[in-house]
Design a protein around this nucleic acid. Structure first.
Length: 273
DNA sequence: CAAAGGTCCTGCTCGC
DNA sequence: TGCGAGCAGGACCTTT
């Protein structure tokens, strides 16, 4: 579910309540997420202060003095600030209870997310150490992307969703940025010109920034840390718009399956060249 | 029944 | 023919 803007929104939402606060305890109601929640996380985190709340790709990092809690929301996860006494509901798997009587509560019906612990530099963790540049960083630029696309036979949509190309671009923003750049999602990467790569870099940054500004996209169940939805769904141009007119040329939006995922596009604006 | 916002892992294919 | 890299598909799980 959550792509980069949604995870960034969660980080910004929890900071005012959790940054600098002490962790009273961690409650694990169901440890069976994508990987088992490590047992030692309870003793490691107890009485530690949250010194920094950071995001890398779609991972949320809660940095303590003795290590870091690494959280991923998978497809269906939410991380909300609630009162510690609020009764847990279905799929509330983890509570990070703070000394200020609030609680960071992870709810994840599909359990594709994870909550892990590392004693060491989290950026060296095996899940994080090989990640590509952040899309909003200067390192993600025309020269970098164009070079990455050379000789690649994979489809451009798959390549921009690949964490080894750039992180944080999921199914929604891949469709949106390809539309803005008038690139067909089914083109192979080696067909993309330098000008198209430049456009794609520009529009990936543009759509992610705009979504962050709106608090992310809520299609179904994404929620900000305070429970409100994100409002970028109202600004989507093609994602989930099959059969609706293209906002540029009014041709009907279509979708194609790429790697089991729906890719929405305008067959006229995004032709195969 | 199909599909849903993620991503790791496996197995296939292609080119050297 | 054999190998490795690159690529697509399957798997994980619940809800609508």
């Amino acid at each position: 579910m959550p792509e980069l803007p949604e995870v960034e929104t969660v980080c910004r939402g929890i900071r005012p309540f959790a940054l600098g606060e002490k962790i009273d305890k961690i409650i694990v109601r169901n440890k069976n997420l994508r990987w088992p929640v490590p047992k030692l996380i309870k003793t490691k985190a107890k009485n530690q202060t949250i010194k920094r709340i950071a995001r890398r790709a779609k991972y949320i990092l809660l940095e303590l003095a003795n290590g870091t809690i690494i959280i991923h929301l998978g497809m269906s996860g939410t991380l909300k600030i609630v009162n510690a006494k609020t009764p847990a509901i279905k799929h509330d798997h983890i509570d990070i209870v703070l000394a200020n009587d609030r609680c960071l509560r992870l709810n994840d019906p599909r359990r594709f997310g994870c909550v892990l612990w590392t004693d060491d530099d989290p950026y060296r963790h095996e899940l994080l150490c090989d990640l590509a540049p952040e899309p909003l960083a200067a390192k993600f630029n025309t020269a970098y992307l164009h070079k990455r696309l050379q000789g690649r036979k994979a489809l451009i949509k798959n390549v921009i969703m690949d964490n080894k190309t750039v992180v944080g671009v999921g199914n929604i923003y891949a469709s949106e940025s390809l539309f803005l750049s008038r690139i067909n999602p089914g083109l192979t990467a080696n067909k993309i010109s330098r000008d198209q790569a430049r456009s794609l870099v520009k529009n990936i940054k543009k759509v992610l920034r705009a979504s962050i500004k709106s608090g992310g996209t809520t299609l179904k169940d994404f929620a900000q840390a305070d429970g409100r939805p994100g409002y970028f769904a109202q600004k989507l141009l093609v994602y989930s718009k099959e059969g609706e007119p293209c906002p540029v040329c009014e041709t009907m939006i279509e979708h194609m399956q790429i790697g089991q995922r729906a890719s929405y596009y305008c067959p006229r604006c995004q032709n195969m060249s």
